[in-house]
Design a protein around this nucleic acid. Structure first.
Length: 280
DNA sequence: AGTGCGGCCTGTCCGC
DNA sequence: TGCGGACAGGCCGCAC
């Protein structure tokens, strides 16, 4: 499941192959993603030069001046580069729903078995787009400020875990990183956010940044996967701090810090894990 | 306005 | 062995 670090790693991985290239064609094989892919997208982008490859939250934005396409990987989506010398021999597989073919023969290929992802297009400033306009700050930018992160939580009845996963507060914290960040901060996921102290918020604020930063740094070492078709199967795992998971999916197993069995609990339909000893 | 949750999907795992 | 069912996940958009 791609979280922000995976999406950023993807952006960095595809950028050198796409930047300033001309789109020759967009081939759509399956339109049924989260929203149906509008067939106009192929016509609109034909012969357009890619001038920017950016990211907002978990949305990737590929732009040609005022025209943008937005790609979301959902939970099982991935993008990879098919180099020009492999373009003919590398046939799309079952869940490869669309290709963006560049003039130099390179193909950007989108795969998404569960089809929770999206491909949309729009004109103008991405920040004005409905899906992006109300997003909270980027966790690794200066816009992510402890003061407002704390203040917005006062009076809210939801849990701290729901709060940090709410993209209106801060983008990019998915279920795995939410669990891990709360563990590292010593806060139980089920606590009412309105009652979590400033001091705890201060720690959490730092930890969220550190965890995401670390994951992106790790992802950087796996960039080669974007041009290694054989690595495709495991691409979603590449870049995770998987060997460092303290609580996620470790129900019943010993806490790596204190040996207490990790507990599992559903919080608003999402699996949550915590150490009853380390987290209060 | 704040909160809760249904729904979209398929690969994987479990139990029969 | 094969098969059905539960589950996982992001996140919009509706209902309260």
């Amino acid at each position: 499941m791609p979280e922000l670090p995976e999406v950023e790693t993807t952006r960095l991985g595809i950028h050198p192959h796409l930047y300033q290239q001309i789109i020759k064609a967009i081939t759509i094989r399956e339109t049924r993603l989260r929203w149906p892919i509008d067939a106009d997208i192929a016509r609109l982008f034909k012969n357009k030069k890619i001038t920017q490859i950016s990211r907002r939250g978990k949305y990737l934005i590929i732009s040609s001046d005022e025209l943008n396409m937005m790609i979301h990987l959902g939970m099982s989506g991935s993008l990879r580069i098919v180099p020009s010398d492999k373009a003919l021999s590398s046939l799309p597989e079952k869940h490869d729903h669309f290709d963006i073919v560049l003039n130099n023969g390179v193909i950007l290929r989108y795969r998404d078995p569960r089809r929770f992802g999206a491909l949309l297009y729009f004109y103008g400033d991405p920040q004005q787009h409905k899906l992006l306009a109300s997003l909270g700050p980027e966790p690794l930018s200066d816009d992510f400020q402890l003061e407002s992160f704390y203040k917005n939580s006062r009076g809210k009845k939801i849990t701290i875990k729901q709060y940090i996963m709410d993209a209106h507060q801060v983008v990019g914290v998915g279920n795995i990183y939410a669990n891990e960040a709360l563990f590292l901060s010593g806060i139980r996921p089920g606590r009412a956010v309105g009652r979590v102290s400033y001091k705890s918020f201060s720690k959490l604020h730092q930890i969220i940044k550190a965890v995401l930063k670390n994951a992106i740094a790790k992802g950087g070492t796996t960039l080669k996967d974007f041009i290694a078709p054989s690595a495709q199967t495991n691409q979603n795992q590449a870049g995770y701090f998987q060997q460092e998971l303290f609580v996620y999916d470790r129900a019943g197993k010993a806490c790596k810090i204190c040996d207490t069995p990790i507990k599992a609990k559903k919080i608003s339909q999402r699996s949550s894990f915590y150490c009853p000893q380390c987290q209060q």
